[in-house]
């Protein structure tokens, strides 16, 4: 399932207004992207982790979500850290393979760590938003930010469809598996093909019915819902905005 569902214990507990969460998110994001030093992203990651832990996320789950972007981040960073050259250079570690020198220097190492730090900071900012805001609040934010209605409706409907299709494909997969469809390679391929085609047909039929159901409830090309997020108190923006300015300022120091 989605990461926001898997760890949604935070959602139940946070009763802040969506805008407040969003401003915090922007503060963390800008703080980590505009930084010149490694300290700010480190503070952001540590702060968000402490926040998660204090709101009931287990350490294991925290490490799990932190490790999620790690794999592709490491691949990218290795290519920055490693220096391959024909001439020897001043390095912390270097080996020579025939004509080439491979290794990393202080400078490249610093750069690599800096980039990892920045990316982790931004990633955690996203986690902060996703884990604290249910889909409904994200929809609210999009609406308030005047994103075109068409896109928002697309977003809402796709999310709903994806959940249904995931559920359906999982059940379908299990029922195939229980009937020994995935025992050999050739039958696995065949079963997978059947799974995909049945999911496709199902989604078409489902879309058809859904549209009928929408029409029956008076849908005429416009989706409006009740607005359940009370009005917003501007005072509550002060803290995140101070945080934002503080983080950006802190990021400007070269350590």
């Amino acid at each position: 399932m989605f990461i926001s569902e898997k760890y949604n214990l935070l959602q139940a507990k946070l009763t802040w207004h969506p805008f407040e969460k969003f401003t915090f998110f922007v503060a963390f994001l800008l703080g980590s992207l505009l930084t010149q030093n490694i300290l700010t992203p480190f503070l952001i990651v540590a702060g968000i982790s402490a926040f998660f832990l204090s709101h009931g996320l287990s350490l294991k789950a925290l490490l799990e979500i932190a490790a999620l972007p790690m794999s592709f981040m490491l691949v990218a960073v290795v290519s920055i850290i490693c220096i391959i050259s024909r001439e020897s250079f001043e390095a912390i570690y270097i080996i020579q393979i025939s004509d080439y020198y491979i290794g990393f220097s202080q400078l490249s190492l610093d750069k690599g760590i800096f980039i990892i730090g920045k990316a982790m900071g931004a990633m955690f900012a996203f986690y902060f938003l996703i884990l604290t805001s249910p889909i409904d609040e994200i929809e609210y934010l999009l609406r308030k930010m005047k994103v075109p209605d068409l896109l928002i409706e697309l977003f809402v409907l796709s999310f709903r469809f994806i959940t249904i299709l995931l559920l359906f494909s999982r059940q379908c997969y299990l029922s195939q598996k229980k009937r020994m469809a995935y025992r050999s390679f050739s039958s696995s391929i065949r079963s997978l093909g059947m799974l995909v085609s049945s999911v496709l047909v199902k989604s078409l039929v489902h879309a058809d019915f859904s549209q009928q159901a929408l029409l029956n409830r008076g849908y005429r090309g416009e989706m409006k819902f009740i607005d359940a997020h009370g009005s917003f108190v501007l005072k509550r923006l002060i803290l995140p905005i101070i945080g934002m300015i503080g983080l950006i300022m802190l990021g400007q120091f070269k350590l």
């Binding site: 709903r160 989706m223 409006k224 819902f225 359940a228």
Partner: peptide, 17 residues
């Protein structure tokens, strides 16, 4: 096939609106 909104409350309000 009938439920589509992101929360129950919104879904119920859809027809009324």
């Amino acid at each position: 096939v009938q439920l589509f909104a992101s929360t129950v409350e919104k879904d119920i309000s859809f027809g009324a609106i």
